[in-house]
C-alpha cells in the first residue's frame, strides 16, 4: 500500500503549494475522464495531506514510523516530567512528522 506521499511523489517535508503542484501534475497525467480509479487514488491522497492538519492527522494515525507510544514513554521517562499543556501537545504531534524524535526538542522547551 503506497503512502499519499508516494502516490503524489512528494517529499514528506513538502509545503502546501508543492503538494498542490504535485497533485495537479498527477491529475493532468491521469485525468478523471481517462482513468477514474487512478484519479480517485490521487485525489484521496491529496485530500489526506493537502494541509498541515491533514498531514499531522495522517502522521498520528497512519504513519508507521511515528511510534507514538515510544515517544510518550520517552517523554514520561524524563527526569523532569513535562507538563502536557496545549502547546507541548502540539509539539508532540509535529515531532512525529518533522523530527521523528521527540526528545531532541522537548527538554529545552519544557523548562521554559
Amino acid at each position: 500500500m503506497k503512502t499519499p506521499y508516494e502516490i503524489l511523489e512528494v517529499a514528506e517535508q513538502a509545503t502546501d503549494s508543492e503538494i498542490k503542484q504535485a497533485y495537479l501534475q498527477k491529475v493532468k497525467q491521469y485525468p478523471p475522464d481517462r482513468d477514474q480509479g487512478m484519479f480517485q487514488q490521487i485525489h484521496s491522497a491529496y485530500e489526506i495531506i493537502k494541509d498541515i492538519t491533514g498531514r499531522e492527522k495522517y502522521a498520528l494515525f497512519n504513519y508507521p514510523e511515528a511510534d507514538f507510544n515510544a515517544l510518550l514513554d520517552q517523554a514520561f521517562s524524563l527526569a523532569e516530567p513535562a507538563i502536557m499543556n496545549a502547546e507541548l501537545f502540539d509539539k508532540l504531534l509535529r515531532a512525529g512528522i518533522d523530527d521523528k524524535t521527540f526528545l531532541t526538542t522537548l527538554p529545552a522547551k519544557a523548562k521554559s
Binding site: 498542490k20 503542484q21 495537479l24 501534475q25 491529475v27 493532468k28
Partner: peptide, 11 residues
C-alpha cells in the same frame, strides 16, 4: 461555481 485554474487543470 468557484474554480481554481492552475497548471492546466480546471478544478
Amino acid at each position: 461555481s468557484v474554480v481554481n485554474i492552475q497548471a492546466g487543470v480546471v478544478e
